[in-house]
Design a protein around this nucleic acid. Structure first.
Lengths: 353, 353
DNA sequence: CTGTTAGCGCCTTCAG
DNA sequence: CTGAAGGCGCTAACAG
């Protein structure tokens, strides 16, 4: 029923081995022979059997990209960029293409491990893991073990927008300077004269959350503002969603109505914060300044446009994709840190006199 | 070096076939034997060889989800929902899991076909194709052929948020009522008293664009407004991006400064339209009303909140996922039409007197 | 319930 | 440059 390589060989009057060689293009074949084979392929409408091919070659052309939330453009942009970089690299021959696929973990550690196992099962050529990591030691251990096994099996493992991992579980790491970005953002607010700054943090157990919060606190400390429980009253945790930003901001407002600025865990959360402030009758930035993080496309369109820290998500994704393909060499030491740029826009201003 | 099923069999002192049976769970095995095998699997840290398994079984557990733009939440939401539905259905046994992966075509017909070929190569269990289709007859023909081949090979093919295809190239189709939604939206504007309504359309060659525009025109015609070149002056085409909405709106404004409303191809475009209007010193909705389509999460947070047509993207994605798994039966006739709900919010109001 | 026996379709030495 | 042969690791009838 289904056409096999042998059928093509018969039609082209060559051996199966020859067909295989022209299909993979990694072995000299006479032009006329190639021609004949290609024609037979076309006439028979032959499609390579991936599993058989992967089994025999002990390798596959599958590349997995893991994301925490596919509906969040933060991940969508990185994943899309990586996928493009991977797909484009395989230009030319029929065999050169890689199947770059994205897997949505939904932030669940179990699903993260499950996908990695599935990818391992498929003998994936590479895996790109994006986004902040969970800080649970048990999960980190399990993840390290799993990634080490993948690496040992010859799968390239690239971390993108994620903190480095100990040991050599990983081929290359691109990590965002969340701490530094957050610090500069809060410094900006301080320089405008703000002193009572609320902070809407992300989920407590994620590295991204912790690093950004630490950067914020560093800036406060450097400005000589008091730390401790009193300052902690101005920090509220939630998830990376608009709703969470809304609720956390209401909470902060109730704890301290004299707030003059709110820094959000990311742009999406910042949008929720804006909604809560507006609802409370406060104007942005006249009454309260707001800042986000990431610089997602909509931040520019927010009203007022959002001051934020720009992360080069697209560039990072492309770079991760190239690393995954083995097209680029890993950075020295295996880790490259990517800085965020402060984008000063209309949502921040000096506090009321 | 790498652990195989035979190694596990040896350690558990059973035959390879038995190991295979407990792993796949689709055959009776004595509890004690199963126990022993599972222990051996654990001790040896065995991972099934996917390609070998797929080859022998002539089937794989890969499910592909094709999207036009992974960075657009419109697709992210559907894809995430589908992926969840697919992943969750495989709960329980070790073998039940499906590898649901999303493939980003970037709207390119070549990449769409390429991914389908790759998926065909992998003998994918199912394919979900999301989003509007290109109207190019040549591409439609190629696509139909390819999908028919997939279907014939036993791959379930589900269309989600896409118009039906002729013949039985496809297992099931979930299509959005773009035309009806657009008609109701424009009717709403008309009922408010608007008569000079600009329309910022999407890319001309996409079905989504055409259907929404047709709905808009139906409403105008029903209200007795003139059609023809004069009315066409109020329509501008662009891509589904914020920038495009911005530019097209400026263009419309220059063609007719007396516009009292702008309907956008989707919410993202509407955001760009708002920016252009504000920049022109026009207030929304006081001077000009604006409406979008899709009801993406940010629409609620826009200022003013956006009147739009709500498409149940999540529900559609879940349903598509279940159809792809074969968990649900296809709708009668193979096609289900999904309606959009009008969301009346703050961006629309009666025109100035 | 469990073992034995054949391949699944392709790649890859090894000869020629 | 091309052909022949063996096996990749697993599953699916068959027997028992």
């Amino acid at each position: 029923m289904t056409v096999t390589l042998a059928d093509v060989a018969a039609r082209a009057r060559v051996s199966p081995a020859t067909v295989s060689r022209v299909l993979n293009g990694n072995y000299p074949v006479a032009a006329s022979t190639r021609e004949r084979v290609l024609r037979a392929v076309d006439e028979l409408d032959y499609v390579l059997n991936g599993p058989a091919s992967s089994l025999a070659a002990a390798a596959s052309d599958l590349v997995g990209i893991l994301v925490n939330d596919i509906a969040d453009p933060f991940f969508g942009i990185m994943a899309g960029a990586a996928q493009t970089a991977i797909g484009d690299a395989g230009t030319g021959r029929a065999g050169g293409e890689k199947l770059a696929v994205v897997c949505n973990t939904g932030g669940s550690p179990e699903r993260e491990l499950m996908y990695l196992t599935l990818l391992q099962r498929q003998r994936a050529a590479a895996v790109v893991v994006t986004g902040g990591a969970l800080e649970d030691p048990q999960h980190i251990a399990a993840l390290t073990t799993k990634l080490t096994k993948l690496t040992d099996a010859g799968t390239r493992v690239v971390l993108c927008g994620r903190p480095p991992m100990p040991g050599d579980a990983v081929t290359a790491t691109l990590t965002f300077d969340n701490r530094g970005g957050a610090r500069r953002l809060t410094e900006h607010l301080l320089s405008l004269g703000h002193r009572r700054i609320g902070y809407v943090a992300g989920p407590a157990e994620r590295t991204t959350t912790r690093h950004r919060l630490e950067g914020h606190r560093e800036a406060l400390a450097a400005a000589g503002l008091p730390a401790g429980p009193d300052a902690d009253r101005l920090v509220a945790h939630g998830s990376y969603t608009r709703t969470s930003g809304y609720e956390a901001t209401r909470e902060l407002l109730s704890r301290d109505p004299s707030l003059t600025a709110v820094v959000a865990a990311n742009d999406t959360v910042a949008l929720g914060a804006c909604a809560a402030l507006r609802e409370a009758g406060l104007r942005i930035p006249d009454d309260v300044s707001v800042a986000g993080f990431d610089d997602l496309p909509f931040s520019l369109d927010a009203v007022p446009s959002l001051t934020t820290v720009r992360l080069p998500l697209h560039e990072a994704g492309v770079r991760a994709g190239r690393l995954a393909m083995g097209a680029d060499a890993p950075p020295l030491g295996g880790v490259a840190t990517i800085r965020g740029d402060l984008m000063l826009r209309a949502s921040t201003a000096p506090p009321r006199a």
